[in-house]
Every structure is written in C-alpha cells, then in structure tokens.
Amino acid sequence: MSSYDESLIPNAPRRQKVSRFRIAAWVLIPLAAILFQVYVRRFAEFLGYLELPLLVTVYFSLMRRQPVGGALIGALIGLAQDSLSQHPLGMFGIVKTLVGYFAASISMRFDVDNHALRFILSFFFFLFHQFFFWVLTQALLGQSLDVPIPQSIIFAFLNAVVAVPLFIILDRLKTEER
C-alpha cells in the first residue's frame, strides 16, 4: 500500500476519526449558508451558482462519518432551505438527505481531509444534487425544470473550487477529533 493509498483509505486506525463541533457551529454554519443563499444572491447575482447549503451538508457529513448523522444533517439543512424557497417542503430535504447519507458513507472509506478528494466529492455531489432535484421536480411536482448539462458541470466545478477553501475554513471550527 502506497502512501497515497494510505491517505485515501481510512482503514488505518489512525484515520478513522470523528470531528466534533460546537453546537453553535452546527446551527450557525448551516444557517449562515442558507442566509447567504437567500440574501447574498439577491445583491450579487454572479454568486448565484454557489450552493453553500449543499457544501455545508457535504462537509458536515464527511466530518461526521456517520450515514445517519449525515442524513439527518442533510434533511435539516434541506428542510430549512425549503422553508425559505418557493418549493414545497421536502424537495431540498430529500435531495440533501441523500447527499448527506452518501457523503457520510464515503467518508467511512476515504480520507476526506484530502483536498483533492474534497474537490471531487464536491463536484460529484453538486451534480448528484442537481440531478435528483431535477428528478423530484419532474416526478413529484410535474414541472419541467430546464437544467443545461454544460452549465451544471461548470457550476459543479465552481462549487468544487469554492468548497476546498470553505472546507479549510470550517476545519478550523472543529473542537476535537477522536
């Protein structure tokens, strides 16, 4: 096993750690992400591609390393985001529940402290989020949501670019790891 593999595969006992945050961080960070999504985009439309609640969900799920915890985080953030959107409650909740669950599941096998992996995961989960949201919109609401694939890919890339420094900032809010 190479050193690279050791850095990605968390089977090593030293890699299997769970990050802890203060309760205020659990509440304020998602809330800030949602508020950013609501208000900042109102004044800075060019930041409209950012999906900060999604990135926060991915981050907390990766750091929690528990699928149940990740699903709960995703559900709460998604429902909060739904409550402030024009969509019915549950649209973002369902999608972010899935994102949190799978992100937490992946974090159990990979070293999510790796920036490259964080970039890739952010890119992937953005597309995953967009795709499932489109599916739910089509299936449950019966609405045709126009989601251009190239634009989605670009947005996924930009979100992944933003996610790497964002995750570094959030890493500083961790209280302990065990």
Partner: peptide
C-alpha cells in the same frame, strides 16, 4: 441496517411532507 433504515425513514417522512403540500393540476394534494 440501521443507516439504511434511518435513510428510508427520513426519505419517507419528507416524501409525505412533500405530498401533503404539493397539489396536482386538479388542485388536489399529492
């Protein structure tokens, strides 16, 4: 399958919540 069960529980709960709100074209809740 605790993780999967919780995931399904969350999804079903939100689906129900979604269905409670969504109305079809005939103004019927989903």
């Amino acid at each position: 399958y605790r993780n999967l069960s919780v995931l399904l529980l969350l999804l079903v709960a939100q689906l129900l919540l979604l269905a409670y709100q969504v109305k079809t074209s005939q103004d019927v809740r989903l």
